[in-house]
Structure formats: structure tokens, C-alpha cells
Simulated assay, not measured.
Amino acid sequence: MQFKKYLVPLGCAALLVVAHRASGWPGVAAVGGGLLMWLLLHVTRLMTVLKRAAHRPIGHVDSAVMLNAKLKPGVTLMHVIAMTRALGERISDEGAEPEVYRWTDNGLSTVQAEFNHGKLVRWQLTRPDPEATPPVPDPTSPAP
């Protein structure tokens, strides 16, 4: 499983070698420009997701039930942050594997997600007892 992190750099290097053999340095410049554009697209997506998450409270999601329905095994933490538009509240210790994060909605329903090497392994939806606690009002919604 660890060999996957070497595939992209090896593939990029192979593309550059093939471009050099096919058309020399102009081919390397063309392929290098394409690879740079690909890298910039990924960095732009990362920055956009984090910019949206910066304006939301940590660990908040609009609907924990909808998040639970959208989650699939193997999605990345960045994909989950993009779906929730908020950083998850870290439950696990810093640097510990697996990483555990929690998102909570206004009704105090929570989704606790476990990530192993950045990929979603399992998650659990927890809903509060309806008689135990009243729901917390949404601070962003207009007052009645």
C-alpha cells in the first residue's frame, strides 16, 4: 500500500523522459508546463476548500444525517472537509493513527469519522435522545 505514494512522482518523471526522447527540450518544457498546471489546479482546489472551511466553526455541519448519508469508505479527509465546509473537531491525539474527527449539527447529532492514512475507514452517526436535551437554535438563522 505504501508504493502508491511513489506512483505519481515516478509517472511524472517517466512523462518527462518520454517527452525528452520524443522531441528534446521543447517536449520537456511542454510536459513540464502541463504538470505544473496540474499541480496548480490541485493547490487551488486545496486553498478554496480551506478558505471555505475557515469561515465556519470547527466541527460544525449543517446536517449530520445528510453527511452520514454522503460518506463513503476511502474518501480523503480533504473531500470530507469540502463536503462539510468545516474542519472537523479532532478527537484523537495529535499525530496518532487512526485520526478521528467529529462534526456536530444544531440538533446535537454527531458524525464521528475515522481516517487511516488520510482515507475514511469508518464513521458513526450518533443522535441525541429527543427527551433529554432541547435542540440548540442556529445562530445564523434569522430570529422569528
Rank of each mutant, 00 (worst) to 15 (best):
H42L: 12
V43S: 15
L67Y: 08
A53E: 01
Y101A: 02
R52Y: 04
P98R: 15
D62N: 09
H60A: 09
A96T: 14
P98K: 05
M37A: 15
L35V: 00
E89Q: 12
R45P: 00
G88M: 00
V75T: 11
P73A: 12
G27N: 02
A64N: 04
G74V: 02
T44A: 09
A69K: 15
E89D: 14
A82R: 12
E94L: 11
I58N: 11
R45G: 05
T44L: 08
G24K: 07
V75N: 07
L87Q: 05
N68C: 11
G88H: 00
A29V: 15
T48H: 12
Y101G: 03
G27I: 10
G88S: 08
E89N: 11
S63G: 06
G33R: 06
D62Q: 13
H79S: 12
H60E: 03
M47C: 14
A30E: 07
L41N: 09
R90G: 05
N68P: 00
A54C: 08
G27M: 09
V80R: 02
V28A: 08
L87K: 12
W103E: 04
P57C: 04
T84Q: 08
A86L: 02
P98H: 08
A86H: 01
D93L: 15
L77Y: 03
R56Q: 14
G59V: 03
S23E: 07
L40K: 11
H55P: 08
A30S: 12
S63T: 04
M47Y: 15
R56A: 08
P98Y: 10
E99K: 13
V65I: 10
